[in-house]
């Protein structure tokens, strides 16, 4: 009698790229809704433009490289890139800026490097860095959150759409009337004008920890992030290490001189730190691979964010920090190669 015999592996992994990417998108959804609630419909338009150009760019590259089209288009990775880019953009962004970022992300940072699985740089952040350096003026139109009593002229849905498509504002309104500084900007300008943190925090856009509205988006991002942790789509190392890298120097500086250093809570909720910790830095392709390497990578990202926010001229440093640490990943992986059983340990002479 012949028994059915199976070769290893006996346990097949049920994780496939499409379901993984869909779950990441699902985890981003609550925060996206919060974003629309607080900062208006601009986010939806940005997301649509980014998705359109990311998917089109992906289709073009896959077609040019004569690879199977369905596989690349149904793994949803371009949509995740587009969603992360949309989270990084201000609500009022002209479509060509978003399109440049999305195309650079997918065409250059992803497909010229060999496509999903080979990209050294996080595509969304590479695209964002390019437009941040190339169009700094167009990435300044952050609007005020729809919460509390802020003296501010909100744009209607149609006006927002018109701005996204044409880059021009309604007749009566200038750029100054519709744009408001982000909490990080307010903090940076205030501190450079020698005001104390508590004076700056009296500004109505500041909330309990970070900025009004921003905190809620941060909360929903954290919920999505913890859900990804529970579903084991991301591991705990990178989020914890990013948090440590950002909060340890922030806490030390805050305790030493609370007048000129914003609290750790402000650093956590003031900008894109939570998005970075759970969704951006955890990109499995461009992050380090071993647990020890991930801790080093995450800590480096957090520390660089703190340094750029505190001493640099950019208000937030998430994109720069992630790209810089992406470059360091091959070197980190080289140093933190796990020990292979049966081989002599490194440093052993035998």
């Amino acid at each position: 009698m012949e028994f059915a015999r199976r070769e290893s592996p006996y346990w097949s992994a049920r994780v496939a790229v499409p379901s993984l990417m869909l779950q990441v998108l699902a985890a981003l959804a609550p925060a996206a809704l919060a974003h629309v609630w607080f900062f208006g419909p601009g986010f939806i338009f940005n997301l649509l433009v980014a998705s359109l150009f990311a998917v089109a760019g992906e289709a073009m590259m896959v077609h040019l490289r004569k690879r199977p089209l369905e596989v690349a288009l149904t793994d949803y990775s371009a949509l995740v890139t587009a969603a992360l880019l949309a989270f990084a953009l201000p609500s009022l962004t002209p479509w060509w800026v978003t399109a440049t970022g999305a195309l650079f992300a997918v065409v250059v940072a992803k497909h010229l490097y060999g496509g999903l699985g080979f990209n050294i740089f996080n595509p969304a952040m590479a695209g964002y860095v390019v437009i941040l350096v190339a169009f700094p003026m167009h990435l300044n139109l952050w609007i005020a959150p729809r919460i509390g009593d802020i003296d501010y002229q909100y744009l209607t849905v149609l006006q927002t759409l018109k701005f996204t498509l044409t880059g021009s504002l309604p007749e009566a309104l200038g750029f100054d009337a519709v744009s408001r500084a982000t909490p990080l900007d307010v903090m940076k300008t205030g501190l450079s004008n020698a005001r104390t943190v508590s004076e700056i925090r009296a500004n109505p856009i500041m909330g309990d920890f970070g900025g009004r509205g921003w905190e809620w988006i941060g909360n929903f991002l954290a919920i999505g992030g913890f859900w990804l942790l529970i579903k084991k789509i991301i591991r705990w190392h990178i989020p914890a290490a990013v948090g440590a890298g950002l909060l340890i120097p922030a806490t030390i500086m805050y305790l030493v001189e609370p007048g000129t250093n914003p609290s750790p809570g402000f650093h956590m909720f003031g900008g894109a730190a939570i998005l970075c910790a759970f969704f951006i830095a955890t990109d499995p392709v461009s992050a380090a691979t071993s647990p020890k390497g991930r801790l080093i990578f995450g800590f480096g990202v957090g520390l660089l964010i703190y340094c750029i926010r505190t001493w640099g001229s950019y208000a937030d440093g998430v994109a720069f920090a992630v790209i810089i640490m992406n470059v360091a990943v091959p070197a980190i992986d080289y140093v933190t190669r796990p020990h292979i059983v049966g081989h002599p340990r490194r440093g052993d002479s035998s």
Binding site: V108, F121, V129, L304, G312, S313, Y314, I323, I324
Partner: peptide
């Protein structure tokens, strides 16, 4: 070609340090 592009993106990333020191 890809090495030069990588160097370019690294250079972009290092612009994040502008204003420090």
């Amino acid at each position: 070609a890809i090495a030069l592009m990588t160097a370019g993106i690294m250079s972009l990333a290092f612009m994040g340090f502008s204003g420090m020191a």
